[in-house]
């Protein structure tokens, strides 16, 4: 059998590539009402759905039995932290803050599920069980996103 010379290059090679693409996602009615509540009312709405209790942020269907619909319930802007993940060295442009911060799950008063959000200040006092309150983006700057709630702050 004829043999061929090996390729000249033997060190590991790689190529850089970026894959980036824009999207525009429809909220649908349920998520849309929740986000409009943040933007227009500074209120946090949940949905009482089949076999799941009051879900915040609400989804269109029960995750237990797939039933649609439910009763809209306003929950408090205060609640209790159920999980903490502190980010001590944030990555610029990727994380929601350039200063040390914490991702938290907050079970708002009146809700049966916990909402994922951030705590930006007084991290030394933050722990599971801490009481927190929503702080809001100013009027005219709320765009109908989850960050219309700027963050949660620790309540003494």
């Amino acid at each position: 059998m004829k043999t061929f010379p090996k390729p000249a290059t033997i060190e590991p090679m790689s190529q850089r590539m970026n894959v980036e693409f824009p999207y525009k996602r429809s909220t649908g009615e349920v998520v849309g009402r929740f986000l409009a509540g943040l933007r227009d009312q500074k209120k946090i709405w949940g949905l009482r759905v089949s076999r799941q209790g009051v879900v915040v942020p609400p989804q269109s269907y029960s995750e237990v039995d797939a039933k649609a619909g439910g009763e809209w319930v306003e929950v408090a802007e205060t609640g209790v932290v159920t999980a903490v993940a502190e980010v001590t060295r944030p990555i610029e442009g990727l994380h929601p803050s350039s200063e040390p911060f914490a991702f938290v799950l907050v079970k708002l008063d009146g809700a049966d599920t916990a909402l994922a959000h951030v705590v930006l200040d007084r991290l030394d006092r933050l722990r599971v069980g801490s009481r927190v309150r929503a702080t809001w983006a100013p009027d005219g700057e709320r765009r109908g996103t989850i960050r219309d709630i700027e963050a949660f702050e620790i309540v003494d």
């Binding site: 996602r25 429809s26 649908g28």
Partner: peptide, 12 residues
Amino acid sequence: KRADVNVAEMVR
């Protein structure tokens, strides 16, 4: 364009 529903609602 189904701007009135999200993916889950359209699928449902």
